[in-house]
Design a protein around this nucleic acid. Structure first.
Lengths: 213, 213
DNA sequence: TGCAAATGTGAGGAACACTCATGTTTTCAA
DNA sequence: TTGAAAACATGAGTGTTCCTCACATTTGCA
């Protein structure tokens, strides 16, 4: 009897488009909405982004926005999903042709640098991932992404170290990858000089862990 | 002319009590407010925490709440500040009497375990720190805390490895500490078995980095 | 051509953080 | 003791925001 009647929206639920745009017209409009959201996030951060402003800048009504995104978080989620897709393709390509430990070291080092530069230069990406601890859907996306990327590492490492324990390898790769994200986030929140030192230290630590001294 | 008249509140500003409670009566009330907030966060998370509910549960009016806390984030910040104070005391004590590398290893390992258990058991702590990427004041507090804790590590390491480069030591300690936080956060968001593996892997990596294989 | 499905609209409902005018209690100097 | 200033307490009200919904328009297609 005391139960609340109006169930609160499940924060854990994956925020998926309320309705998939099936016509050309609406697909273009959805693109405009995402572009507008991205621009506003770059300017003020996703917290300060107002749904009305997104609609106005995209040249659509507020109702249209909610036609395709169930709520505000879903927009951020959609942007995040794009970034994961892009970055996975990039990472996969960078690691695909690695043949020996030296090749791995330079490929890994380059990947970390790219990631670091990306976070330094792109406020939208920084911001989109900043809700990762508080928003369960985002957190799940990030973890899935991290696992996928760790798999790329594992695939290479299995070639380089065929005798290593696979479970151990998996654990290490996942951990090292997550720490890379943490290291980069840390690096961009301190001054540039210290940030560079931290990223370098991370690289050394990660490589020692993955392919030995 | 186009400038907005109502300046938005500066998100970066440290949320400090609007007015310090100077009388015994109000100090007790502030305690009740924090206790109520803590309980509500444990139940539903800080996002779902309603200011009206905090006031009601603390047995004060909504106005009294705002007498001592400038906004909602300030309450979470105040709780976070307490945790940092407690944990710094705990960490300092655990590392103070370390004499050799073996002693350091076991003390460090124990600290990580305590931290892991704490995050597993205390939803409030988990939640309070979850806003750390999005909220600048919280982020600053966390970084300051991390630096302070890294200093404890550095102090010990300087005794154990007097010949090491101080700057390098500082960088490594700071990085390793932050990664510990990331590792624990990661560990509690996967199933228990994998979490344990990840924490163990982190310990091994950190110790290798700090005092060598 | 006409109908159903998809899409588009924006005024308005509801929830929430926070303010402020006003009243009450405590402190403390004279 | 007293009186006034400072600290504290109150909660109805303000403003902002997210999101809904009843209704209008456009598109795909038999």
């Amino acid at each position: 009897m005391d139960e609340k009647v109006s169930a609160k929206p499940d924060q854990a639920a994956i925020a998926s488009p309320r309705r998939s745009p099936s016509q050309q017209r609406s697909r273009e409009r959805v693109e405009r909405m995402l572009a507008a959201a991205s621009a506003l996030i770059a300017e003020q951060g996703s917290d300060a982004m107002r749904m009305g402003e997104v609609a106005e800048r995209a040249g659509v009504s507020i109702g249209s926005l909610y036609q395709f995104f169930p709520d505000k978080r879903a927009i951020v989620w959609a942007l995040a999903e794009r970034y994961t897709a892009e970055s996975q393709a990039c990472i996969s390509a960078a690691l695909k042709d690695v043949g020996d430990a030296e090749g791995f070291k330079s490929a890994f080092s380059e990947l970390v640098d790219i990631y670091y530069q990306l976070f330094l230069a792109e406020p939208v990406i920084r911001d989109v991932w900043s809700g990762t601890q508080a928003d369960k859907a985002l957190r799940a996306l990030e973890l899935a992404d991290s696992r996928a990327n760790a798999e790329f590492l594992v695939a290479v490492l299995k070639r380089l170290r065929p005798d290593a324990d696979p479970v151990q390898l998996e654990t290490t790769a996942f951990l090292v990858w997550q720490m890379g994200e943490a290291a980069v986030r840390l690096a961009i929140s301190v001054d540039r000089e210290e940030g560079d030192r931290l990223v370098a230290a991370y690289k050394a630590m990660a490589l020692r862990e993955l392919v030995g001294g």
